[in-house]
């Protein structure tokens, strides 16, 4: 989800840059030096996964996956998404320099929010875990479209209709992201649960329960 260049006003661009700077600073602070290669390879995986086009009716949408990214990386999602956007800019020329800050905030803030909302629930029993995963995938895209809409509204109040259109256009994407999140989290729980957050705490609880 991007805002093109040349749409937003100076204050909004400035605010986006300041917020992205702050978020990235927190993320980098939390990123231990020995975790850099790991984070980089995972970000690369997310970058590639976001190129997957999923069919929906006659058209197709590409996966965003910022919910799962947030779940796995927490605050580190900020630098990871900043880099992914920069890569998209240089490799495919989606988005560019002036909107880098705003677009990072649009994608990364919901990722961090979803981490804090849902990280505690993914290791719970089936139904709760499914619900949390779906909400994580769905809401991450929903929040992103809201932030995008807000950025448009702060630029010019006449963008209201456009902002609504953006949110509505992303509704199918939200459902798909929710479904993909359920299956993806379920898969990771079976195959490599330590990739998901709070695994050690959940394991301890499980062994105590047994």
């Amino acid at each position: 989800m991007h805002i093109s260049e040349g749409v937003l006003s100076a204050p909004v661009l400035g605010a986006g840059m300041a917020l992205a700077f702050a978020g990235t600073a927190v993320g980098l602070k939390k990123l231990k030096e020995d975790k850099i290669p790991r984070t980089a390879v995972l970000s690369a995986a997310f970058f590639v996964a976001s190129l997957i086009h999923v069919p929906i009716g006659p058209s197709s949408v590409h996966l965003i996956l910022n919910g799962i990214l947030g779940l796995m990386l927490g605050w580190i999602a900020f630098p990871a998404i900043l880099i992914a956007l920069l890569l998209q800019g240089v490799l495919f020329q989606f988005g560019g320099i002036t909107t880098l800050g705003v677009n990072t905030v649009i994608m990364a803030t919901p990722a961090v929010v979803c981490h804090y909302l849902f990280a505690g629930f993914v290791h719970k029993p089936k139904a709760i875990s499914y619900a949390a995963s779906f909400a994580c995938g769905f809401l991450s895209v929903f929040f992103s479209s809201l932030v995008l809409g807000t950025a448009l509204m702060f630029t010019q109040e006449s963008f209201l209709a456009v902002a609504w259109a953006v949110v509505i256009a992303h509704l199918p994407v939200m459902f798909i992201e929710g479904l993909v999140a359920i299956f993806c989290v379920g898969f990771l729980k079976k195959v490599q649960p330590e990739l998901l957050p709070k695994w050690s705490a959940a394991r301890q609880q499980n062994t105590l329960a047994v």
Binding site: R38, A40, V54, L63, L179, V180, L195
Partner: peptide, 28 residues
């Protein structure tokens, strides 16, 4: 446009993350 497709793509992504994480350890 069906559940099977979304499940397959989700598993594919999951596998990508699992392989990436294993590779990351080797790289490190």
């Amino acid at each position: 446009t069906n559940m099977h497709t979304y499940r397959t793509y989700a598993y594919l992504c999951g596998m990508l993350f699992v392989r990436a994480s294993a590779r990351a350890q080797r790289v490190y």
